[in-house]
Amino acid sequence: MRKSILLICVLCLGALLSEMKGQTATFKALFLYNFTKNIDWPAEANGSDLVITILGDDDVSAELEKIAKVKKAGNKSIKIVQARSVKEVGDSHIVFLGAAKSALMQTLSYEQQDKPVLLVADKGGLCKQGAGISFVTVSGKLRYEICPALIESHNLKVTQKIISLGIEVQ
C-alpha cells in the first residue's frame, strides 16, 4: 500500500508543476466593467472617476487595470483601488470582494450599508450576507446571482437586463 501511495504522489507532483492559469479573472473583470453600464448611481456618488475597489483578488484587479486603460464608464475614468482590509475600503462605486476574503462579507456590507455602492462577491450565496451580485459557476459557465432589492437599498438603480441575465435571489 505504501508503494502505491508513493507512486501516486510522484505522478501528482509532476502534474502540479504544470498548473494552468484560467480565464476566469478576465471574465470577472469584464463583468464588473459591464455592470457599470447597467447600474445608475445617485447624484451624490458622482465624482470625476468611477471607483472600483478590489478587496482580496490581485488577478481581477490586474485585469480591471487593463480595461481601465482603454475604456471609460460613461464619461468617467475608471479608477481601480486595491484594499487589504474592510477598513481600507473608501468611497467607491463598486466593491469587489475576492473569494479568499468572503468571510468579511457581513462586516463589509454593514460598513457600506448606507452608501451608494454596488457590492460584488466572488462566491455563491453571499447575497444573503449583503452582496448585491455574487459570481457563481453553474455547469462550467460563469454566472452571477443578483439581489435587486439589496442593490436598490443602496440607492442604486438596476436595469431589467442585468436582472434577467442573472440568477435572481433574495
Binding site: 480565464q23 471574465f27 469584464l30 459591464n34 437586463k161
Partner: peptide, 27 residues
Amino acid sequence: TTEELSALSLEDLMSAIDVVGVSSLEE
C-alpha cells in the same frame, strides 16, 4: 482584445464567456 470584449453588451459578453467556458481546472 480587451477593448473589443469591453465593448460587448452584457448578453453578448455572456455568450462569449460561455463559448470559452470556465477552464476545467478553474471549475
